[in-house]
């Protein structure tokens, strides 16, 4: 049996940033897997950099909240990435639960997301494309970060991390960690995005209306940033609490800390795990 014959495709389940994803079965172990197929002859650039990053970074990252890459099968025309199988993504989960997710599940999913993120940050890896479609869920309620095609290792300072790398609706003013906050709010609202902007400017306006426009007073140096342009000054409103009515007070406090514009003041994934919102989970762990 050649290596590619080891898996039998069962059905097509979606399209990733590159290539098609299938549910497949290992003929050796009968295990169900996800098979991501990248056609190399369609590519102008050889192995796409997104596939290359995903393979190389996921080989390093082994954590229960990060999807496992099980195998890479390379043929002349295709590159097949074999991942552990997860039943659905968070987007489909949102669609299935009609805007109602219980508080315990919200807390558990956000806790797991933060665990995965803080492990990535320890390994100097930025995911850079956090969104519900890239968060997979297993039958047992385990959440796993997937699709590292835009991720990069960040040992060295890079001129600019944002611009075009994050899907618009989950893009915080700075992409490092705020995306997690947007997902937290969406979880708490049963799947309704916190900020659903139609363009970059519209998105920023919607964000600033809630958390206030960054100014030199609350973010020294902001006006010297490469893509800075002045916006109408919106005062930070406490209306965020109206956006997430179902979230308890500790949760609201944590959300506010995740969405602070100035990245130096925004809470990190590691610190967020220590927040009182998670006190009952912390005592179990």
């Amino acid at each position: 049996m050649s290596r590619t014959d080891k898996y039998e495709k069962i059905e097509r389940i979606g399209e990733g940033t590159y290539g098609t994803v299938y549910r497949a079965r290992s003929l050796l172990t009968q295990e169900i897997v996800a098979l991501k197929k990248v056609r190399l002859d369609d590519e102008d650039d050889g192995v796409p950099s997104s596939a290359l990053r995903e393979i190389c970074l996921l080989k390093e990252l082994r954590h229960p909240n990060i999807v496992r890459l099980l195998d890479v099968i390379h043929t002349e025309k295709t590159l097949n990435l074999i991942f552990e199988y997860c039943d659905q993504d968070l987007k489909k989960y949102f669609d299935s639960c009609n805007g109602d997710i219980d508080a315990k599940t919200v807390q558990s999913f956000f806790w797991q997301l933060l665990q995965g993120l803080s492990y990535c940050h320890e390994h100097s890896v930025l995911h850079r494309d956090l969104k519900p479609q890239n968060l997979l869920l297993t039958k047992n309620g385990q959440l796993k970060l997937a699709d590292f095609g835009l991720a990069r290792a960040y040992g060295i300072p890079v001129k600019c991390y944002s611009s075009e790398v994050v899907t618009l609706w989950y893009r915080p003013p700075d992409v490092l960690f705020g995306s997690a906050g947007c997902i937290f709010a969406e979880l708490a609202n049963g799947g309704k995005p916190l900020f659903s902007g139609e363009s970059v400017d519209d998105q920023l306006r919607r964000i600033f209306k809630v958390i206030g426009t960054p100014t030199e007073e609350n973010w020294p140096g902001v006006s010297t940033l490469p893509e800075y342009k002045p916006f109408s000054i919106y005062q930070p409103t406490l209306s965020l609490i109206h956006f997430v009515p179902k979230l308890n007070n500790k949760g609201k406090d944590l959300l506010l800390r995740c969405l602070i514009c100035n990245p130096n003041q925004r809470i990190s994934a590691v610190d967020a795990l220590q927040h009182p919102y998670f006190s009952d989970i912390q005592s179990v762990n």
Binding site: R53, C56, K59, A153, G155, I156
Partner: peptide
């Protein structure tokens, strides 16, 4: 592709510059 296969896709490693900061 020959390089990636030969090195078993272990391509992303730490370089001295990553330590500077």
């Amino acid at each position: 592709q020959l390089i990636a296969e030969t090195l078993d896709w272990d391509l992303s490693t730490v370089v001295p510059h990553d330590y500077i900061q």
